[in-house]
Nucleic acid binder design. Sequence first.
DNA 1: CTGAAAGCGCTTACAG
DNA 2: CTGAAAGCGCTTACAG
Lengths: 343, 343
Amino acid sequence: MRAGQPVTIKDVAQRAGVSSATVSLVLNNVADSRVSAATAERVRAAASELAYAPNLVARGLRRRRTNTIAVLSDEIATTPFASRMIGAIQDVAMRNGLLVFMVNTAGDPETERSAVVAFNQQQVDGFVYACLYHRVVDLPPGLGSNVVVLDGRTRRPRFPAVVPDDRGGAQAAVTELLAHGHRRIGFVNDYSATVAADLRLKGYRDALREHGVRFDKRAVRNAEPGLEPSAEAAVRLHEDAGVTALFCFNDRVAIGAYHGLRRHGLAVPRDVSVVGFDDQEFVADYADPPLTTVALPHYAMGQWAAEELIERINGGTDQPRVCEMPCELVRRGSVGPPRADGT
Amino acid sequence: MRAGQPVTIKDVAQRAGVSSATVSLVLNNVADSRVSAATAERVRAAASELAYAPNLVARGLRRRRTNTIAVLSDEIATTPFASRMIGAIQDVAMRNGLLVFMVNTAGDPETERSAVVAFNQQQVDGFVYACLYHRVVDLPPGLGSNVVVLDGRTRRPRFPAVVPDDRGGAQAAVTELLAHGHRRIGFVNDYSATVAADLRLKGYRDALREHGVRFDKRAVRNAEPGLEPSAEAAVRLHEDAGVTALFCFNDRVAIGAYHGLRRHGLAVPRDVSVVGFDDQEFVADYADPPLTTVALPHYAMGQWAAEELIERINGGTDQPRVCEMPCELVRRGSVGPPRADGT
DNA sequence: CTGAAAGCGCTTACAG
DNA sequence: CTGAAAGCGCTTACAG
């Protein structure tokens, strides 16, 4: 052990008066190694005295297993959304002694490819491919078989995937409105035909049907991104389609609706009730009035993804499952009964 | 090259009919290796035909340099805030061929320690220690010398650090209010005495002094976290201290102020002008009216931190600098002139 | 101009 | 019960 140099297994071996093989056996608690208790004790003492910590790079080379995973994300890690998914992955990884690489590919296929190559060179044990929102993804090539898809699904179910139960969440949202007595309920959906948009529309219709309310396509509008289109859609739905309540594709859309309604002298929930989706921090809870919404189970999804990946890494590569995580309604202040005069 | 096995330098050597040493020399473009052009060509051809990609773990072991860095963050990576800092680090890292490990320690010293140990075992080349907000931090032990602190500073300047110029930003915010004619300007500061709170108060006073407005400590209040305390503080400042404009510690506080003001029938900016701090996405821009605020230069700070770290890793370990990144005013709709009647 | 050898720090049969 | 040896896949003096 030269001064300033990191302490290696050799240093421990020397201090304990044994071979480095024995040190390895002891420190790794190898089951049938038959090292005498006394020797083992000496090794452990030496290791602790020298504050020995194995070089994981050397171990990784030798074992062909690095105990690292890579999270590839299309923006999500660096976006306010769903940072809880990342948090969950890290928590699970830490509990299981894995270190996690993270990269943001901005959804660019070229960047994705080169990231996959780099992480393969780095010998990661597996990948989680995290999406910004529930959609169908084309996975980059070369991922191998230890992959799980987070908040997205592949065309064919080659890998495990976890997604929110958008349909059930939407149904819960609309049911909440129905339970307050609303019958004319508008839906401001997303402009793009994502899986999420499609499922939330289905959930909306499920709830109406269940309550014997006829679906009216004039009560559904798609809004481009941004506050203005949502504001416009909300106002039109109320004024033209006579809607007394609004289910919004997400919380940002709901905020747009708030803006439009207020501008027209309409109060939430007195004149129009509103429900959002996402339960986005500092958006739903900071709205005025606080927004009733459906929580996306980001943490639970991240956790599921990480645990499933670890299982695959450890050899359990059975049928890839798709997990639909339930989405709970969060009641706040934006839902009330319709006005008595029905306008 | 056995089927199914990854291709190694040996495979390339064999196919090119040279030794693996030569392959290494060629593929690494070693300057004075004096490999003949013809041989080099054969090696390159073989490598490309086999789609050879060097095993970074083996290389890391041998070179004692892994081209990986670790980002330790007290929550930030998994919080809506400042995800741009992380994005910037990843961008810079990718451009420089570094892979980045990320871990969220939740600020827990025990977790921090063990993360540092783990990353040292993993032989990372350096650390960035990222803070949720500008404060004084105690770094965990064992970080080595390749460290930079992001959005925080250490008691003694042992390491480079990058922080926002909170004082200048606050001054710009208050100057904006003064420029609109306000003279009674309140400040809703943070409840905890962080570096940021202290500097923003200084900037507030700087601006007042520069415009010949006397500092009045009754115009300053500290608000506990949450909407309510901020709402309360804003209303009191207006009603008791006669303030016509409000500078808020951050955008969330400003939203609290909006709530309180509206509840009292006060309109922004007609009755009271408001300026925030952070330019938090979906908070400042989605406020009604959109909030004039000061942008925290998250991306620029992350970039600076990553570049500085890389410089240190590459040997440039001179005096640790502290960079104060300028904070720009973002004008939106929450500032107007004071009411003619001065209330 | 190029190859044989040593070695980075581990782990794992194998031999005794 | 324990050690010597080989080897994971690279890189780097060194020799010729």
